[in-house]
Design a protein around this nucleic acid. Structure first.
Length: 590
RNA sequence: GCGCCCAUAGCUCAACUGGAUAGAGCAUCGCCCUUCUAAGGCGAGGGUUUCAGGUUCGAAUCCUGAUGGGCGUGCCA
């Protein structure tokens, strides 16, 4: 419908040029928008105001000329009436039967209604969550998970070919700290006595992994505590203590005393147990991934070395103080960055360069990374590396998600995986349910700081707008079911034939609302803003509830009844489609 | 210090990316269930869009500055 009006206006612009009112080289962007206020008609354009300079005419005078030309047209399609208003808006009133035409589209396309092709089949890799597998996901990760998954669905609806990926940081010091923590807890279970390192992982899940380790291997991996701790730097709080040095020494001891094979056993049980837990957790959150990409695999297959060589070939690598530096300042970064440390170890940044290069080599047109906003300083250097390797940095889109600031009873909550003080995503799901949590997270636009009051989320889960939307869906099911029970089951064909019986304001409102859905998808997708879907669905649900209260659907008159039931069935379809994008279920009963 | 992000009703957030009278939900106050699910509907009150300038037909939105908050500023991952 919007497209039709754009066509009409393009036609008008051409005529204005022909008449010499507009210069030949004028090529205005034709802007047709939905009106906010019904007295302004259904659609409006600001064309006259945009062209006021080019035409050298005041906006209202130009608008009158435009309206004149439109009214002179033979075929005005769905346009019933055109009006000029305000400073020079041209308002279009659309014929009712044209408004209800959308219902047929909904049934024709079913779950595909709303899809568009702005993506044109381009392939996208959406990487998100990617939390270190050193502990369970906490509620902070939940926002990234809900947002990333919804963005991915949204892009798919918009005609992109989408894969979702979780980058598993299974290499590096944090994982060694985890392995060492598991082993130390295991030693304690075996009866060894010592103080647990202040910098170790202290969560309960570490005990559980250690217990499993003991069940599987008995005392095979046991070493005396005095042997483990001799020669180890003192911990924080002790004289000359240094918690970083303390844990690093313990890692070395752990590796030496166990030997490579046994260390790998401990390492693997920690990694695998936690990764399995994360997978299961995300599944329960209705979030799935095509790939779980291992950082170690990058190292082992030499991709990191290859990437460093590629940078070297670009001449942007230099050596200083025994380390290899990447000259990212040449690409606008604040300072140069180390890729290989003086001790020969590659930095995390090095594997990240390799990882992004690898993503492009796999043939993706667009890379989307969903990161916590605390990593924003990281963006310029990754883009710099991509540019240095002759890949287009524009191909990478980093979406930053602001931290959820957690409160419990008005108190701000500090969270740290290391200390074991955090609320897990699983706890949240258990208490408020996956649907409510998914919706809650994605309701806010991602760059908004979000206050997350846990008590509120739990105690008032009934106030979560997700139920409002689901209720609308269930209500429709219920009405249709009762109509059938009364022997007045919906006859959709008859309904389609009698849509002219729909005369209430609520009915046209709903139809107009349905017609907006594909636009909302397209707009939300290119902006990476799933919250727009959430707001749209709230509006649509409101339209339905309002309609429900305004009249009876199951009435004696066949034509009216079938028309009304047909309309709400279409609404139900769109509610379902929208909820699916947000990863929320659409229940038949509540 | 420098860089990025944010600031809208009492609270939590929208505002179709520069459009018309800035909208929802909570919370407050009125109504509406012998009628298809009241997890609902209808209505009222509540605003100098943090502040000061600027850009233009037109600004919550863009620019400059100020104030307040978050984050970053490792040869950590």
């Amino acid at each position: 419908m919007k497209q039709q009006i754009v066509q009409i206006l393009m036609n008008v612009v051409q005529q204005l040029k022909d008449q010499g009112i507009l210069p030949e080289d004028a090529s205005p962007r034709i802007n047709v928008e939905n009106t906010r206020d019904k007295s302004h008609g259904d659609l409006a354009t600001n064309l006259a105001m945009m062209l006021t300079k080019a035409a050298g005419m005041p906006p209202r005078a130009l608008a009158e000329k435009v309206v004149e030309l439109i009214e002179a047209m033979e075929d005005r399609g769905a346009v019933e009436k055109v009006e000029i208003a305000g400073p020079g808006f041209i308002n279009f009133f659309v014929k009712d039967d044209a408004k209800f035409a959308v219902i047929e589209q909904v049934f024709a396309q079913k779950e595909k209604f709303g899809r568009c092709n702005v993506g044109q089949g381009r392939s996208v890799l959406v990487e998100f969550v990617s939390a270190n597998p050193t502990g369970p996901l906490h509620v902070g990760h939940g926002r990234g998970a809900a947002y990333g998954a919804s963005v991915a669905s949204l892009l798919e609806e918009a005609g992109f070919k989408v894969d979702k990926e979780y980058y598993v940081n299974d290499a590096g010091r944090q994982m060694d700290i985890l392995a060492t923590s598991v082993w130390l807890r295991y030693l304690a279970l075996c009866g060894e006595e010592f103080d647990f390192p202040s910098n170790g992982y202290k969560g309960d899940y570490v005990f559980e992994i250690s217990a499993e380790l003991k069940r599987e291997h008995g005392e095979l991996l046991r070493k005396p505590a005095f042997e483990v701790f001799t020669g180890v730097c003192a911990d924080e709080g002790q004289t000359d203590g240094d918690k970083e040095k303390h844990i690093d020494d313990l890692i070395s001891k752990c590796k030496n005393l166990l030997g490579a094979a046994h260390y790998e056993t401990v390492f693997a049980i920690g990694l695998n147990t936690i990764l399995e837990d994360i997978k299961e957790d995300l599944e329960g959150f209705n979030v799935s991934f095509e790939n779980w990409f291992s950082e170690r695999s990058l190292m082992e297959t030499g991709v990191v070395d290859a990437a460093i060589e590629k940078l070297q070939a670009s001449g942007k690598i230099y050596e200083q103080n025994g380390a290899l530096w990447f000259r990212s300042t040449d690409y606008g970064d604040e300072k140069d960055r180390v890729v290989v440390r003086d001790n020969g170890l590659k930095t995390y940044f090095a594997s990240d360069i390799a990882y992004h290069f690898n993503k492009l080599e796999r043939g993706y047109d667009i890379l989307i990374d969903v990161w916590g906003s605390d990593h924003h300083g990281y963006v310029p250097r990754v883009k710099a590396a991509m540019e240095a390797m002759n890949t287009n940095p524009e191909a990478l889109e980093v979406l930053l998600v602001q931290f959820a600031i957690l409160y419990r009873g008005g108190e701000k909550l500090a969270m740290s995986t290391r200390s074991g003080q955090f609320v897990t995503l699983r706890d949240l799901r258990d208490e408020v349910g996956s649907d409510a949590a998914r919706f809650f997270y994605v309701q806010r636009k991602s760059e908004q700081h979000m206050d997350f009051d846990l008590d509120l989320a739990k105690s008032q889960s009934n106030d979560n707008p997700v139920y409002y939307i689901q209720y609308a869906h269930a209500r429709i099911s219920s009405v249709l079911e009762q109509a059938a029970e009364k022997g007045m089951a919906l006859d959709r064909e008859a309904g389609m034939a009698s849509l002219d019986k729909l005369e209430l304001d609520q009915e046209t409102d709903l139809a107009v609302q349905l017609a907006k859905y594909p636009e909302v998808i397209a707009r939300a997708a290119v902006a990476y803003e799933p919250h727009q879907i959430a707001y749209y669905l709230k509006d649509l649900a409101h339209g339905l509830h309002s309609y429900y209260n305004a009249c009876q659907f199951i009435v004696e008159d066949d034509t009216v009844r079938n028309a009304r039931l047909t309309l709400i069935l279409a609404v139900q379809q769109v509610l379902k489609n929208g909820l699916a994008i947000l990863g929320v279920s659409a229940p038949e009963k509540m």
